[in-house]
Design a protein around this nucleic acid. Structure first.
Length: 466
RNA sequence: GGUCCCAUCGUCUAACGGUUAGGACACUGGCCUCUCACGCCAGUAACAGGGGUUCGAAUCCCCUUGGGAUCACCA
């Protein structure tokens, strides 16, 4: 059996949205899982709405998601000869015909039908006229008036449509461009696509497409219509549901692996498992585990999953994703041991990369900005002698590991008969400027002896001055 | 309105005729503790309704209700 060939075929009429990303992901996962081929095709036959920036936005989003394609990108606008050749063939074989009815006439037909309670549909005026191509004419498909067309869908099961529901739909517009249903089928046929995975808002198109496959005497592909992604009000996601653009999630500080994990788990499941690495997704994804009901996009769960991925990713691997956020914070961080240390202390406390960069601020701030209230409360005369005792012993230290530090703290705690908390908070304020931070020992190790001592000195000077 | 699809905790979902209906997010307690997190433990919470089929139904069938999608010379 030939290997699987899937495709993602977005129309470039805006940024890549969440639903589109999931469609792309499922196609990609299925191809990767089966060792098949994933093809990218840009459906830009709508000359009015398609834009070049949209094309770039789609590439940009796919690149971020690390969804790569094996063939393409193909542009429908560059394949007109292919569509026209198929049009000629269908007309020659009697499956399609030229039609000179004007949009006004069509509208009149619809009005009339609506008035009498019939379906608004093309009445077949030109169907048997044997017209040839002329200015302003379109090509229509000669649809069967009776019988049924059944869609055998791997996720939905069989769906039966009565052919009388269909009319002689347009295959080629008067401007010479093919319509979606026609171009999609011709492309899928010529690109040898054998598995079509797409949103279930396409099921109503499928019988028309099947009819075209039949007219072309081409075997049908496997259809898999995956359920929709809805907003929190259960309607199709749109801007009023918050961010719908994939890159908006990148800009919020999501990890691409967390995002695809989340997307995959909406509509697809693998027992009780929630967390998947990219490799696991590829290994475990199969179409038969795709569910049939629509799901609501839950940004809170996405955030939780992102936190899990941040925790599970090595500081080294996190770095390239984090750097842009550090830059945005005005932090000139390098991909080095210091940064990796910083990241390690922040992983358990960051839900997004943006948060992480903000929390990393104090490590790089020289001098560190003291929070007014925190300094008021903890950098007191009482704390001064503790900090001084600590500084003295710290400066005498040869190695600056957590064990060495703990020993010093125990000494000080013993000498002053105090608990760790008594010294930790003033020290925390001295080192970070605030009362909230990673563990005090972790911070010190990452900062290193010199920075720690310098910050202690500055805090002590601050106390003496107040 | 026509056509089509869908229906388990608030949300994402598991269950493939027999379970105290499981997990995750969120929420609420508690533990851990140098702050904040993390982690751990515990708890609240669902089979839309009604008929069948069956010894037995969340699972199969029908109806109702609810939700969604789609009805172009857009894709």
């Amino acid at each position: 059996m030939a290997s699987v060939r899937t495709r993602f075929a977005p129309s470039p009429t805006g940024y890549l949205h969440v639903g589109g990303a999931r469609t792309a992901l499922f196609n990609w996962l299925h191809a990767r899982h089966t060792g098949g081929c994933f093809i990218l095709r840009i459906e830009d036959t709508d000359q009015v709405r398609s834009t070049e920036p949209s094309v770039q936005a789609i590439f940009d989003a796919l690149r971020w998601l690390e969804i790569d394609w094996d063939e393409g990108p193909f542009f429908q606008s560059q394949r007109l000869d292919i569509y026209n050749a198929h049009i000629d063939r269908l007309v020659a074989e009697g499956h399609a015909y030229h039609c000179t009815c004007t949009p006004e006439q069509i509208e009149a037909m619809r009005e009339k039908a609506r008035a009498t309670g019939d379906k608004p549909r093309y009445d077949g005026t030109c169907r048997e006229k044997g017209l040839s191509a002329g200015p302003g004419s379109v090509v229509r498909f000669k649809a069967p008036a009776t019988g049924t067309t059944v869609v055998e869908d791997v996720v939905k099961g069989n769906i039966v449509f009565a052919n009388e529901e269909l009319d002689d739909f347009v295959l080629r517009r008067s401007d010479g461009m093919p319509t979606y249903n026609f171009a999609a089928v011709v492309d899928d046929v010529t690109m040898r696509i054998d598995t079509i995975i797409r949103g279930d808002d396409h099921v109503m198109n499928t019988p028309k497409q099947i009819l075209i496959y039949n007219a072309l005497s081409h075997p049908l592909p496997v259809f898999a219509h995956v359920p929709m992604v809805l907003g929190n009000d259960r309607t199709r996601m749109s801007k009023r549901h918050g961010a719908t653009s994939v890159t908006a999630y990148r800009d919020m500080g999501l990890l691409p692996d967390a995002f695809i994990n989340f997307l995959a788990r909406m509509g697809w499941s693998y027992g009780d498992q929630e967390f998947f690495t990219r490799a696991e997704l590829i290994e475990k994804f199969t179409l038969d585990r795709v569910g049939k009901s629509a799901g609501i996009f839950d940004p809170v769960k996405l955030g939780a999953l992102n936190a899990d991925h941040i925790k599970a990713t090595s500081p080294q691997a996190l770095t390239r994703h984090l750097l842009p956020f550090m830059q945005a914070q005005g932090i000139a961080a390098q991909d080095d041991a210091f940064l990796h240390g910083v990241i390690a202390t922040l992983q358990a406390r960051s839900k997004t990369l943006d948060e992480m960069a903000r929390q990393a601020h104090f490590y790089y701030a020289e001098p560190v900005a003291l929070d007014e209230a925190a300094a008021q409360k903890f950098l007191t005369a009482e704390a001064l002698e503790l900090l001084r005792a600590l500084a003295e012993r710290l400066s005498a230290l040869g190695s600056f590991g957590e064990k060495d530090l703990e020993a010093v703290f125990l000494e000080v705690m013993e000498a002053f008969k105090i608990k760790l908390g008594k010294i930790a908070q003033p020290l925390r304020v001295a080192l970070t400027g605030t009362t909230v931070s990673p563990g005090i020992f972790e911070i010190m190790v990452v900062l290193g002896k010199d920075r720690v001592l310098a910050r202690l000195e500055r805090a002590m000077a601050y106390i003496e001055k107040r």
